[in-house]
Design a protein around this nucleic acid. Structure first.
Lengths: 146, 146
DNA sequence: ACATTTCATATTAACTTACTGGGAATTCGT
DNA sequence: ACGAATTCCCAGTAAGTTAATATGAAATGT
């Protein structure tokens, strides 16, 4: 019941790109440096995010990545499901309808469903923009000028 | 983010013992048969439950296991934490205080804390007695006589 | 004594995780 | 046209986990 580094790093990548967005491409090398994550491992994770359309890539020198959409358009749930796979706590819930031969009489399925709902309810209601906002609030970077 | 068979089987064992409680010892062999789980694997899981004091064992012929306490005294959370380890979605939350060097500025920690709370809130509020009750309700085994 | 049952430990095959490495393809600047 | 920078792609790998299986010792009722 742990989220792997792949999923955690993916969320941090998305937040890093949102935070450091200047309209220009951001290189893996820079993200890796800021986040303290190996470049090569990040490449793979960013590859997933790019393939899914979360990121837009530019190849070649001066290339890099940008968020495809606004930070508010990405939930933590979307990022985790992409990188971790389904967030259901038991595998039998992944197929629909449930193929488990015991599912009709399974006494514990309801607990797992409640658990899945609770998990989804958290991760699907936090966006990258929410994380960014909290980050900036803590850093006191808000611009309160009128 | 999956619960392993060890955790799921442990919950089923506890429910099986509650359901088939006659005051006498219940053998691994019988639980294994009812639940469709390998005896040898169950032995290990039951060993954990026994060592933790959840079950009381009687050795030798006609030996077996019984729940140490009333089914209402065991939550699913207790059973899962014993068999799965901590239910925290990220490892850095397992040590207190958090030892992660980034934890003071970690933008994502709050999400994981919310997630942990949501998970705990579900599993700590469902007891073996709750599962048993639902089981009996479905089977129509309630005794409504006055 | 014997059958039954728990208890303890070792082994194993398959899978997953968290990387590392090599190199091809693409693009910018000069 | 060339070289440096960068993404893209795929292969390999060491360590750990999962889900068992195997073997046999210890305890106990009959």
């Amino acid at each position: 019941m742990k989220i792997s580094t792949r999923g955690r790093y993916a969320v941090r990548v998305m937040l890093d790109l949102a935070e450091n967005n200047t309209g220009e491409c951001i290189k893996v090398k820079d993200i890796a440096k800021r986040q303290g994550i190996s470049e090569k491992y990040l490449e793979q994770i960013i590859g997933l995010l790019t393939k899914a359309g979360f990121l837009t890539s530019v190849r070649g020198a001066q290339g890099g990545y940008t968020l495809t959409r606004d930070p508010s358009a990405y939930t933590v749930g979307q990022i985790l499901r992409l990188t971790e796979g389904s967030l259901n706590p038991v595998a039998c819930m992944d197929a629909q309808p449930n193929q488990c031969e015991r599912c009709d009489t399974c006494e514990t399925l309801e607990v797992w469903q409640d658990l899945a709902n609770a998990i989804n309810n958290v991760v699907d209601h936090v966006t990258v923009a929410d994380l960014l906002e909290k980050q900036r609030a803590r850093l006191g970077n808000y611009n309160y000028s009128i």
